[in-house]
Design a protein around this nucleic acid. Structure first.
Lengths: 229, 229
DNA sequence: AGTGATCGTCACAAACTTGTCATAAATTCA
DNA sequence: TGAATTTATGACAAGTTTGTGACGATCACT
């Protein structure tokens, strides 16, 4: 899955390096700059998923960067987390009013910053924050009712969607036809076991893609499983 | 304009009263309860726009309330701000991981809480904060009650307007007819599910534009969603 | 009271899904 | 190899879900 891209605007080299390291460990793609103007340039070109912005930076001030990010259409809706020195409550209020989404006062723990950034990412980009399931090259966003394979959106019927969802929630495991009927159709359904075969075929057809292998594995005399391909 | 509705779960009467007063002055509709179970009950019935939740409360604990709010479909996406005692960083991490959106440690200034709540409201319910929402080529200015698409002003009936507003506040997500009835018509409305179809058609008709695709997606056996086109 | 807009419901048409079957293909094992 | 078992596939009719036009009721405003 695509990494969320972070722009870190921080002119304390030690802190910048520490945060860069920690965020990279959390699977973020981090870009660092100490300079406000450079930050604006990069932000409008590359549209990061989130900006972490120190209030006191060289060149254009933090609040001015914040304001300009909001004014530029390309970055108007990118979440911003601001960092400032302790005790500057007025700064905080102004920051939030200028359009920042969150605010931390130094010194803060990297864990806290990471937790806050993750909370924002979860809300803004659910697909990037684990509200979607990924198995191999398949990605399912159950909320949006969308399935993607290698970037292409797949069209599945309702039953195939539920079937795939169940498989993706238990990747690699083999399920008998009876188990699949119980899980996907409901315990009280009165349906031929063989019908599962048909829906497996429909699922295979629905997720097939030029040059991509079939992730649905038939286990003879046992059932079916979804493999991470 | 409708006031944003806040649910404040706080068992310190002095703090609760202070916050209630301050938020009312900021034009929020505030409901206060010291009890976790009562909070859950009210939240699932009335679906507040945001929940402020003290970690240490009587009855069900704060984190448990948070978890249950997330689990209940009706409240799964309501933002939560948690309050806790100073120095409990682990609590903070757990809170944010459980699904809270923001976190403050006591003592905090009411101004700070208000600023943070406003920042969240601005992001997730722009319409309530007096800003305009944009989804794809659609723009809605809820205050002026105007919708534009690629520059043209659209004429929508009241219900279609509310329906579109709800969709635009949750772009991409699929909602069942029942959910749409609850959200747009009100929880206590006693209306045929199929009536939603009719209003979806009226909405589609209202926003259709020469050469522009239909952003309303039908998800068979699930409901409807608004796509960013 | 009169006008026009909006609302909820219905009935029917259109579009799509679904479960089953018959048959073909694949696999197992003696 | 050949028979037996198991799975894959195409077709189809029944069933379900959604789209649409029409209609009377209601409401706001004149």
């Amino acid at each position: 899955m695509k990494q969320p891209r972070l722009l870190l605007v921080e002119d304390d080299p030690a802190l910048a390096e520490l945060l860069e390291f920690r965020f990279k460990a959390e699977n973020y793609d981090v870009r660092v700059t100490p300079d406000g103007d450079e930050a604006l340039l990069w932000a409008s070109e590359e549209a990061p998923d989130l900006v972490i912005l120190d209030w006191m930076i060289e060149g254009t001030s933090g609040i001015e960067v914040c304001r300009r990010l909001r004014r530029d259409k390309a970055t108007a809706h990118v979440p911003i987390v601001m960092l400032t020195a302790r005790g500057a409550e007025d700064d905080m209020i102004r920051g939030l009013e200028t359009g920042a989404d969150d605010y931390l006062t130094k010194p803060f723990s990297p864990r806290e910053l990471i937790a806050r950034v993750s909370a924002i990412m979860r809300r803004i980009r659910p697909a990037l924050a684990g509200e979607s399931i990924t198995v191999g090259d398949l990605t399912m966003d159950a909320t949006a009712h969308k399935v993607t394979r290698r970037g292409s959106i797949l069209a599945l019927g309702p039953t195939e969607f539920r079937l795939l969802k169940f498989f993706m929630e238990h990747p690699g495991r083999v399920f008998s036809r009876g188990q699949l009927l119980d899980a996907v159709w409901g315990t009280d359904s009165d349906i031929e076991l063989r019908t599962v075969d048909v829906h497996i075929r429909r699922l295979r057809k629905g997720i097939e893609l030029e040059g991509a292998p079939d992730p649905v594995r038939t286990v003879r005399s046992a059932g079916y499983a979804l493999e991470a391909v």
